[in-house]
């Protein structure tokens, strides 16, 4: 199967700026800091691929390598089969890069003038450029403000213009680096909707979405790679990640009319993570959250044990861990 993007043992080390002392005493000693270490990922066509990781994890370095702005130190990376170190021109025809850095625009040009300038640099001829720009401005709800200078735009408008610029060439692959940064919740929600429904749903693009925001990744991405310290810690669909990493399952058991001594006994059980009393009108409930793995019993066994202790069972249901739960476990595990 051929992937839209594939990296094999991709590594990147950046040289560290030497101090005067090093220049003087060790002028030829190389000082490097690793940014990516043996990253191997595959991205399929039509994926919204989330690169998830804390700041400094290596997400932007990976995107820059795939966009041909940085050369890898080792390993290989391919975009639609083109090698990032040799086929820069071909790759740049296929990709759009949504740079969230607002300084990447000309502040004293209007939104429309900025797009027109970048359209020319992307080999789009005058009439076609005008048509595409107007379509994109409409699509992103920016048409009314397109004549204003970029410096007068709000953060949300700047982000939208960055997306418009990334889409100018109608690229098959779109890289988005922290696109929801600085956006208010409503704009961030609209942006995610736009990516999911319009760019991927309607236009069938492949989107690589780098973020440190777990909710963004959970809501948007059908495939996720969690990167930490330059290494891919885990990769797959959210379900894959849940099953791969979280081998134990979490449940909530609701008991009615449990009192005193029995509560203390239940609380002392190793499987129990938390207990909470909930009152519902005249009835008193106790909610018990517990976790069962491969080696510490079964759900049926635990329920029977609790019922035998005197608890009146009301309900039991499984709770799926959120990406946030998984992420913090993965990061802690390191």
């Amino acid at each position: 199967m051929s992937y839209v993007i594939e990296t094999v043992n991709l590594s990147k080390k950046y040289p560290v700026l030497k101090g005067y002392r090093d220049i003087l005493f060790h002028p030829f000693r190389k000082k490097e800091t690793p940014a990516l270490n043996n990253v191997t990922i595959q991205i399929n066509e039509g994926d919204i691929f989330g690169l998830l990781g804390p700041n400094g994890a290596g997400k932007t370095t990976l995107i820059k390598i795939l966009c041909t702005l940085v050369l890898p130190s080792a390993g290989s990376a391919y975009v639609k089969g083109y090698d990032v170190t040799r086929d820069e021109k071909s790759i740049r025809k296929l990709i759009g890069y949504v740079i969230s850095e607002e300084r990447s625009f000309y502040w004293r040009l209007s939104g429309r003038q900025n797009l027109k300038f970048f359209a020319k640099l992307n080999n789009i001829l005058n009439r076609e450029a005008d048509q595409r720009i107007e379509r994109l401005l409409e699509f992103l709800d920016l048409a009314a403000d397109a004549g204003r200078m970029f410096k007068d735009y709000s953060t949300g408008m700047r982000q939208k213009l960055a997306i418009a610029r990334g889409l100018l060439t109608d690229p098959a692959i779109l890289f988005m680096d922290e696109p929801t940064n600085g956006l208010d919740p409503v704009s961030a929600h609209n942006l995610k909707l736009l990516v999911k429904e319009k760019l991927v749903g309607e236009k069938k693009k492949t989107v690589i979405f780098a973020t440190h925001n777990l909710r963004d990744a959970e809501e948007l991405c059908n495939h996720i790679a969690i990167i930490q310290n330059g290494e891919v810690r885990i990769e797959g669909t959210l379900e894959d990640i849940r099953s791969k990493f979280n081998e134990s399952k979490r449940y909530v058991m609701k008991l009615r009319n449990v009192e005193g001594e029995v509560l203390v006994k239940i609380h002392n059980k190793a499987l129990v993570k938390s207990m909470m009393s909930v009152s519902n009108g005249s009835s008193g409930f106790t909610e018990i959250e517990f976790e069962i793995g491969h080696n510490n019993g079964s759900l049926q066994g635990f329920v029977k044990e609790i019922v035998d202790m005197g608890g009146e069972l009301f309900s039991v249901y499984e709770i799926e861990p959120t990406l946030e739960d998984l992420f913090s476990e993965i990061v802690k595990a390191k």
């Binding site: 966009c67 041909t68 702005l69 021109k89 740049r92 025809k93 990709i95 890069y97 740079i99 850095e101 300084r103 990447s104 625009f105 000309y106 970048f118 640099l121 992307n122 080999n123 610029r165 060439t169």
Partner: peptide
Amino acid sequence: TLEALLVTQ
């Protein structure tokens, strides 16, 4: 702006 220019065709 250099990054945005360098990623164009």
